[in-house]
């Protein structure tokens, strides 16, 4: 939600959550969306702000292991939740990308890149359900994400490529402790 609010004066509520595997205890503005809080509150700009009404999927994050639009959930609703954003996807402390990211690069699935974090998060959510999705299952899992440059063929190919390379440890950290 937009608003001229000055973040110093806004009402806040205390919440605890995990973000990309790290525990946080924070006072979050009561009527900010998670999207706004990630970007303006915590400086995590990887989650993109597109339509802000759930249509484009650019703000997709993992919320207790499932994909949702960070623009359609209030920041206070992260209390007790395990959140993953694009910043946490690549393996920590190692060089290099996650196999899903690597496949997107190799298959030309990234052009301007604005939609990519959302697509990557939706893809990981899909893999948490099924490791070997059919093309139809991939289409359905990604139907909530829009891309306006590459077209979708490259993205579907990237997901297929990623599926063929995925190992258990590439998904382990995303599995929510609460599910």
């Amino acid at each position: 939600m937009k608003g001229p609010q000055d973040s110093a004066t806004v009402a806040r509520v205390q919440v605890s959550f995990r973000l990309n595997g790290v525990s946080f205890r924070k006072r979050v503005p009561v009527d900010w969306t998670l999207l706004r809080y990630l970007r303006e509150g915590l400086g995590y700009y990887g989650t993109k702000c597109g339509c802000e009404i759930g249509d484009c999927g650019a703000c997709t994050v993992l919320y207790d292991g499932v994909a949702l639009n960070a623009c359609l959930i209030l920041a206070p609703q992260v209390d007790g939740v395990d959140i993953w954003t694009i910043e946490g996807v690549a393996p920590q402390g190692e060089r290099g990308l996650h196999p899903v990211q690597q496949a997107f690069v190799e298959r030309g699935a990234v052009h301007c890149g604005f939609c990519t974090p959302g697509f990557v998060m939706s893809t990981i959510a899909l893999f948490l359900e099924t490791r070997n999705p059919s093309r139809q299952e991939i289409k359905e899992a990604l139907a909530g994400n829009l891309c306006r440059c590459t077209g979708y063929i490259q993205i579907l190919d990237a997901v297929k490529t990623a599926a063929s390379r995925l190992r258990d440890r590439d998904l382990k950290k995303f599995v929510s402790r609460r599910r």
Partner: peptide, 19 residues
């Protein structure tokens, strides 16, 4: 919140409800 937050999108700060 999928209907509500869309509806509140353009509601100014001071006008927002308690959730």
């Amino acid at each position: 919140g999928t209907d509500l937050l869309v509806r509140l999108h353009d509601v100014a700060a001071g006008e927002r409800p308690s959730f």
